[in-house]
Structure formats: structure tokens, C-alpha cells
Amino acid sequence: MNDEKQQDAGVPEGPPEKSAVIAFTLNGTAVTVHATPDRRVIDLLREDLGLTGSKEGCGTGECGACTIMVDGRTRLACLMVAAQLEGRTVETVESLADSDTGRRVRDAFVTHGAVQCGYCTPGMAMAALAVVRESPEADRPAIREALSGNLCRCTGYVQIIDAVVHVASEER
């Protein structure tokens, strides 16, 4: 915790008996946060850590807007509590442009017109990153399946699927 390279975030002033110290890797940086252990991860990210990329749509696991990656697998930040992050590696959309693959996802979303209102985009981009990273061989049906947990109410999905199919073809 005293390591100066670590970011001390969260609400350290909070009553100590209610707060837990949680250390994890967030977008490539080791962080230590003070938060109530049952704080929802979406609230920890957005309100305590200021990472407002991940969105809350439904709060019940039905829309995918809060999709993040934990230890490389997609998870829903609205259905996790802060204490679960201890020791884990967390990636949010804020780190999308940190990798070549992530940049290709971002660029493909732009060039394919895969963003309209943008609310689903962070979750959609993380689900896209997960599938092209894990299975670049994924064909169109596999990509549709990989994005099936993310709702978009604007695009009709076609542009989004096109974008991810394009990235997968680049990754192969």
C-alpha cells in the first residue's frame, strides 16, 4: 500500500470498520482501493475511481453495458462486488487503446459506423475485444454469439457485427 507506484484511490477517509482494502490490477496499473466489500464493481469503477466508460444499463445482467474483463474473461460489473476483485486483473474500456487489437476494435467501430448513441459501445467493445483476442478464427455466427449478451437499441447490430468480423479477419 505504501508503494508509491500504486495509485491510492477510493475513499480512504471512510470509517475503517466499513471499508475494505482491495488490491488489484486495473488497466495495467496496480491499484489499492478502500471500499465497502459489497460495493458493486460498476459503482467502484464509475464513482470511486472515475472510470465512467463502463455504463450501467439495467443493473440486473440483461444488457451488457457494464461488460468488463476480469482475468481476461468478460464479466458484468453490475453483478460483482468489489471484494471479488482482490488480486485480479481488471480491464475496462478505458484501456481499449492500450493494445494493437484494442485499437483495431476502436478503429473498426468508427469506420463501420458501429456507434450511434454510444451507450452500449464500451460493453460491446469489451465483448468484441474478448472474442477477437480469444478466437480470431471466429466466423460471423460465432461473433454474433459472442456479442449476444450486449444490447444495442440504435444500430440494428449489423454495423457492430461488421466491425468485429473485420477485426477478426485482421487478427488472423
Partner: peptide, 9 residues
């Protein structure tokens, strides 16, 4: 069940 992220959890 659910979607991919739900099935990871």
C-alpha cells in the same frame, strides 16, 4: 443461459 459474460460468472 443468459449471455457469454453471464455464463463466465
Amino acid at each position: 443461459v443468459g449471455g457469454p459474460a453471464i455464463r463466465n460468472m
